[in-house]
């Protein structure tokens, strides 16, 4: 066994941080896809991640489906949940205000959490890692193959989203809704469908995050809140509404958490990310890549 130096330890924290940060980045992306189109902060965002992991457990472990079928099936199912969330919890509200929308998404999140508890119970579930658990050694640090899958998926999602929003007509229509919903509907864009699509897309990214993180960190019914709040922290850290900001924010958030847990105190692991979130809110609410002007134009 070779000696673990301080430098390799730091490298290890950094790699772990990037991995968990990639998950936060995906949650943050989910937040801002909905936020950009509807100006709603969906407090149930973390529940998509939990559902992704747990539904995948049913498909692969209980039903014995191969990965290539179970993965898309899980994503589609969680997308349906996302659409239902909008249909049943958000659209029926007659006079939406920031307060009622927050309360409605909180209500939806505890409903989803409760349902997950009834279906799956309170124990955490494990999933098989995509390509085994033989660790790869890199400059003395240990890398699980699943870490590479997580980082790879973040890159894949980033590329797909940027093609979708910049190159496809639907993506451009969604961006138009985000900029100005009234003007968008004047030029013939069906804003209702765009809102539904934003919930579906956001749920899909959440589900992917849940599927790929479960082999590393397990998954249980009540993980939603902490994932949501860290994802939101990542979104604000990068500047709420900015896609590159969300990714950067997520990676920074994950790294801070990993270094904080490793170097300062593992008992306060969850507190570091939250303290960063509060610090950003207090000192620079527009975030690293966000703009204060744009945030002033938002309704809520």
């Amino acid at each position: 066994m070779e000696k673990i130096t301080f430098a390799t330890q730091l490298l290890q924290y950094f790699i772990t941080g990037l991995t968990i940060g990639s998950i936060y980045a995906m949650v943050a992306l989910g937040f801002i896809i909905i936020y950009n189109v509807t100006e709603i902060i969906n407090f149930a965002q973390g529940e998509f991640v939990v559902l992704g992991g747990l539904v995948m457990v049913v498909f692969t472990v209980s039903a014995g489906l191969p990965l290539v079928i179970a993965f898309p099936a899980t994503v589609v199912l969680v997308m349906l949940v996302g659409i239902l969330l909008h249909r049943l919890a958000i659209r029926p509200i007659r006079k939406p205000s920031v307060l009622t929308l927050i309360i409605a998404t909180i209500a939806a999140s505890i409903l989803m959490k409760g349902t997950a508890m009834v279906i799956w119970g309170k124990d955490p579930f494990d999933l098989q890692a995509f390509s085994g658990r033989d660790p790869i050694s890199f400059l003395g640090a240990i890398i699980q193959p699943q870490y590479l899958w997580v980082i790879g998926f973040l890159i894949l999602i980033t590329i797909s989203l940027s093609i979708f929003f910049n190159r496809t007509i639907i993506g451009k229509a969604m961006r138009a809704c985000a900029d100005n919903p009234d003007a968008a509907s004047l030029v013939g864009i069906n804003t209702t469908n765009m809102i539904l699509l934003s919930f579906a897309l956001s749920a899909a990214i959440g589900a992917i995050a849940g599927i790929i993180v479960t082999p590393i960190a397990l998954m249980e019914y009540d993980r939603g809140v902490s994932l949501a709040i860290k994802g939101f922290g990542a979104a604000i850290l990068g500047g709420l509404g900015s896609f590159p900001g969300a990714i950067l924010g997520g990676l920074i958030m994950g790294t801070i958490e990993s270094f904080g847990a490793g170097l300062i105190s593992s008992a306060y692991k969850d507190a570091f990310a939250l303290i960063v979130l509060l610090a950003v809110l207090f000192f620079k609410p527009s975030g690293l890549l966000g703009s204060a002007e744009i945030s002033k134009m938002k309704r809520f």
């Binding site: 902490s226 939250l274 609410p285």
Partner: peptide, 27 residues
């Protein structure tokens, strides 16, 4: 600081603060 911010920021800031205090009680 957080009441100067808009609705959902306050929601998240208070949520984060509540969880931090809960962690302190436990640790």
């Amino acid at each position: 600081p957080s009441l100067k911010l808009k609705g959902h920021y306050l929601g998240m800031a208070t949520l984060a603060f509540g969880i931090i205090v809960f962690i302190i009680f436990n640790e």
